[in-house]
């Protein structure tokens, strides 16, 4: 565990909590893509099945349980409790265009052709693109609430910090996981445009809105 990995995890946790609190406090999930949140719930579910097969550390187990529980709570708030505020008309990304290719790729390119390993690989690939419905929704409506941009910032920062963690681990531990690294690079690149808008607009006190 190095500082980049730890701050990455905490950044991820911050993103998840920010989103939950935003929905809970405003009693509304307006502007949030339920499809992205469904995909993240699927990501955590398929990745953390190893909770049943191996124990790594109390930290590892607790964080996995927290991520899974929070992602299911978020999906519950969007599709059940605050369903009336869910902006389904703007959440029109076709998720099958992500899930099907990603599913196929995880069968073809993985570390080991075993059910758990294929599901882990599926979750790594799916996570890298799971934010697309949310970004698509923002590009359709042309704007995002500031709190939503904070959520996206921490969610993007988390994988960027993991990239530094992997560079660190390569040099100091000789560890290198090509699948995680390539997917992590793709994931981080998808946020670059957003990072630019976040720094040039939101951090200067302006609302994130896109030119028509």
């Amino acid at each position: 565990m190095n500082i980049f990995r730890l701050t990455g995890d905490l950044s991820h946790l911050a993103a998840i909590i920010i989103l939950l609190l935003k929905i809970w406090k405003t009693r509304s999930c307006a502007g949030i893509s339920g499809k992205s949140q469904l995909l993240f719930a699927l990501v955590f579910t398929t990745r953390y099945l190893d909770l049943f097969t191996s124990f790594i550390s109390l930290y590892n187990t607790s964080m996995k349980l927290i991520y899974v529980a929070c992602s299911y709570a978020t999906v519950y708030l969007i599709y059940m409790k605050f369903k009336a505020t869910y902006d389904g008309n703007h959440d029109t990304f076709r998720v099958e265009f992500l899930v099907v290719p990603v599913g196929g790729l995880s069968f073809l390119v993985n570390h080991d052709f075993s059910p758990l390993e294929i599901l882990w690989t599926f979750s790594i690939y799916l996570e890298s693109v799971a934010i697309l419905p949310q970004l698509f929704m923002i590009s359709k409506t042309g704007e995002a609430e500031t709190i939503t941009t904070h959520y996206l910032f921490f969610l993007g920062l988390y994988r960027a910090l993991y990239l530094i963690n992997w560079i660190w681990r390569y040099y100091f531990e000789g560890f290198f996981d090509l699948i995680a690294v390539v997917a992590g690079v793709v994931q981080t690149i998808l946020y670059c445009d957003f990072f630019y808008l976040y720094v040039t607009k939101v951090l200067k006190g302006k609302k994130l809105s896109l030119p028509a």
Binding site: R5, D9, H12, D50, S54, I56, S57, N60, M63, K64, Y67, H111, D112, E117, W120, T121, I124, Y162, F175, D177, I179, A180
Partner: peptide, 10 residues
């Protein structure tokens, strides 16, 4: 197994 994924990471 050098090829196996590291399940310590989240």
């Amino acid at each position: 197994d050098p090829g196996a994924a590291d399940h310590d990471e989240l």
